[in-house]
């Protein structure tokens, strides 16, 4: 388990934008990924309230979704987002980290379907949710 987290950490370190947003893996495996992003004033979308911009939340949810696809037991070689629909429920509380929990709920030979929620410290009331379709590239010879 520690190994997979170590690999996951390296994976996120290798993504410049994930590193730029300060994303950190909480857990990973079996088509599921949990990634958090600390509060940062640079990512604020509404200066009056200090609420994080929806775009930064989208980036977090997209990263968690991609990671969930990559750790699916069918071991895809790579993935890319086909589409992502994001629903914004409420403003994230300023000062709090945001955590995205993504799950691959169905996988075909070439597509992975993912759902993901984002919440601040109050995990009972998500700030946003999204569903997406991701490409699934099989390793060579796996077909």
């Amino acid at each position: 388990m520690t190994d997979i987290i170590q690999i996951a950490r390296q994976f996120i370190e290798a993504i410049p934008h994930a590193r730029a947003l300060g994303m950190e893996f909480e857990s990973l495996g079996d088509g599921k990924a949990v990634i958090s992003m600390p509060y940062d004033p640079r990512f604020v979308g509404d200066p009056v309230t200090g609420v994080i911009h929806g775009g930064a939340v989208s980036a977090l949810m997209d990263t968690a979704s991609g990671a969930a696809v990559m750790c699916h037991p069918t071991a895809p070689a790579s993935t890319a987002t086909l589409d992502l629909r994001i629903d914004y429920f409420r403003a994230a509380t300023p000062g709090q980290a945001i955590t995205a929990r993504a799950e691959c709920y169905h996988v075909t030979r070439s597509v992975a379907f993912v759902r993901v929620t984002a919440s601040d410290e109050d995990a009972t009331r998500p700030v946003a949710a999204a569903t997406g379709a991701f490409t699934l590239d099989r390793p060579k010879g796996a077909n």
Binding site: H17, S58, D62, S78, I86
Partner: peptide, 17 residues
């Protein structure tokens, strides 16, 4: 803004934002 350093490609989240 890179999301896939191997290609390289913009991060999907950056595009969404």
């Amino acid at each position: 803004l890179i999301g896939n350093p191997a290609l390289p490609a913009l991060h999907g989240g950056v595009t969404a934002a």
